[in-house]
Nucleic acid binder design. Sequence first.
DNA 1: ACCTGAACACCGTTCAAGT
DNA 2: ACCTGAACACCGTTCAAGT
Lengths: 184, 184
Amino acid sequence: MRYHRRDVVERAIAVLDEYGLESLSMRRLAAELGLQPSALYHHVPNKQTLLAAIADEILARGRRERQAVEWDRRVVEICCELRDAMLAYRDGCDVVATAHTFGLGASEPATALRAALRDSGLPDDLVEVGTRALLHLVFGHTAEEQAALQAASAGAIDWEPGGTGDFEAGIGLLLDGLRSKVHR
Amino acid sequence: MRYHRRDVVERAIAVLDEYGLESLSMRRLAAELGLQPSALYHHVPNKQTLLAAIADEILARGRRERQAVEWDRRVVEICCELRDAMLAYRDGCDVVATAHTFGLGASEPATALRAALRDSGLPDDLVEVGTRALLHLVFGHTAEEQAALQAASAGAIDWEPGGTGDFEAGIGLLLDGLRSKVHR
DNA sequence: ACCTGAACACCGTTCAAGT
DNA sequence: ACCTGAACACCGTTCAAGT
């Protein structure tokens, strides 16, 4: 059977979700598709690129309509969408955050947050600082939450994840800081 | 020659700083010490534990006196000390942040931040949310900064790191949010 | 206590060759 | 265009045996 890039990315996400990032090797993925490892390099130049494609696909699958009009409500909406998208797949936060760090894709949320902050009337440098701070908070909180959720579902119930409340509280603190800088 | 745990950790930090995290393998470290790979397992139960020990040592080497008395100045002091400690070694942020995420050591900064926020009179839940948010900001910003610094020193000068200004601005935004929650 | 030697079960990537 | 087969240069970890 003959595959295309899209098939490889889709199967990679399935392997990721079922067995976790540490089990998602090029050799394992090839075996899952009934291919030799070398065949994968026809569809993807290397593993890093594959992971970036997975990150983009995870974000695309988590996309939903954004309806808020005020800039601060929109920030919360974007952050929650990002968090939910990453939580929907095992190790999703790891994959998306890494891709973002390496500057390979996963850039839509950053763009959307920047646009929202720009609409607030904040000066350019604060737009930039705020965007990055918001992303760090979302990635940091979600990574912790996902680790806790996965540890709990593996039986090691050592910590109840703060959940949505803690998440929105953290974002809220930063948003308070940003709002105080908007001169009306 | 006979080694102790301390020698192994010290040599591991030297390898990390000179060749980077991706080159710090158990086999490479063993070779650097003139040992068989299996000999390392006499000093350390596994690689994860070694990395946690490295993280703790990096933080210990970056320790400095904290002199601020007001809680918010102390928060800035702790965050800056943490950032500087991690920036002092190649891939230091990666190692410390990972150890912290896995709950293996690297816990002193969290403890110190929690204590500072407690002194502010903030309610317990906000102390917790604030501590984690501050750590996420420090790790997120420092990871980005260190990646940019290392890319720049490797010749790929694609982005000037925001530096201390951007760092303190991000922390400052969150601190504004926290200060607005302190009832006086 | 600390170390060697050998093995087990893996990695990512390249490249000539096949259809 | 898509794939096989074989190879290269690696991993972390275990375990019996040596001193």
